[in-house]
Simulated assay, not measured.
Amino acid sequence: MVNVSIARRYARALLDVAADANRIDAVADQLTAFVKAYESNPELSDVLLNPAFSRSQRSHVVEAMIQLTGNIDPTLANALRLLVDRNRLVYLPDIARVYRDMADARSGRVRGHVTSASKLAPDAVEQLRKSLQQLTQRDVILESREDPSLLGGVSAQVGSVLFDGSVRTQLEQMRRALKQQ
């Protein structure tokens, strides 16, 4: 619970500053890329999180990453420096997730996942996105996943609402109905 509270505080501050500069989405994209680099490299994570490394060593690593990424937003660069100074880099993935959620809420977007037994065609995903957009009255950003255990059909989750049209669920419902008779 402490992680969420700390992450929410930093994410809100970053969002407010990014909103003033009209750079909410650019900061979100760069923050996500930074977190992916941070999580995908165990050596980098070790340097940034291990207390055996000094604050100045971590600061040099973060500065090098900022220079390597090149066109990083100054708002994000300052936030990363602040996280190093306050020894809060461990919360960076949570901050990125909360920031993205807050940015989506501010922009009227909602994220969702569509799961199917096999890969869906891009036009089918787009058609499903438009249908979900009409149902939710919000801009929907869909991620596509595959799960062969669904057997067929599609399951879509948007926010906390699940639309399940999978064959597996339909078979389960028929099994329950037959048991009750």
Rank of each mutant, 00 (worst) to 15 (best):
Q30P: 13
Q173Y: 01
Q134K: 11
A124S: 08
V140C: 03
Q67P: 11
A18T: 09
S166Y: 09
A33V: 10
R9T: 03
R12C: 07
R23L: 03
Y10S: 08
H113S: 13
E146L: 03
V27S: 08
Q30R: 08
V27H: 05
D104R: 06
R88E: 01
D139R: 12
E63H: 13
K119T: 15
L89Q: 06
I66C: 10
R100E: 04
M174Q: 09
S45P: 10
L92V: 07
A11T: 01
R176L: 15
Q173R: 14
R9L: 00
A7M: 00
P42D: 10
V62M: 01
F34S: 06
P42E: 00
L178D: 12
S118K: 11
F163A: 05
V110Y: 05
V114Q: 08
A117Y: 07
K179R: 13
L120W: 04
A103C: 11
L178N: 08
Q157L: 10
G112S: 09
A105P: 12
P93E: 00
A105F: 10
S45C: 04
L171G: 15
D46H: 10
R168C: 04
A79E: 01
V161K: 14
L80C: 10
R86G: 06
A52R: 15
R100S: 02
S59D: 05
L80P: 10
S116E: 12
M174T: 14
L68Q: 14
S149Q: 11
A121C: 00
S155G: 04
A52I: 12
D29G: 14
T115C: 09
A33N: 08
A7S: 01
S54M: 03
V98G: 01
L92K: 02
L31N: 05
S107M: 11
T32W: 03
E63S: 15
V161Y: 09
L82P: 05
A28T: 01
D123P: 02
A117P: 15
F163N: 06
R55C: 07
A64I: 00
D16Y: 01
N87F: 13
D25S: 14
R86V: 01
L128K: 05
E39S: 06
M65W: 05
R138W: 00
R81N: 14
P122S: 13
V114T: 08
L48H: 00
L120G: 10
T136M: 04
A52D: 10
G165Y: 09
S144I: 06
G108H: 02
T136L: 00
S116P: 13
A156K: 05
R86W: 01
I72S: 14
A13K: 11
V2Y: 15
E39Y: 00
N87K: 15
Q170M: 08
I24M: 10
N78R: 15
G152M: 07
E126T: 14
L171N: 11
D147P: 06
R55D: 09
L162W: 04
D94E: 14
Q170A: 09
A77D: 08
V90H: 13
H113P: 07
I72R: 12
R129W: 04
Q170F: 01
L132Q: 09
S118F: 07
A96N: 04
R58P: 13
S56Y: 03
V158C: 13
F34I: 03
R9S: 05
M1N: 09
N71A: 14
L132M: 15
A79D: 02
R55T: 06
E126S: 11
L92Y: 00
L132R: 08
G112N: 02
M65G: 12
S160R: 06
D85P: 14
Q57N: 12
Q67M: 06
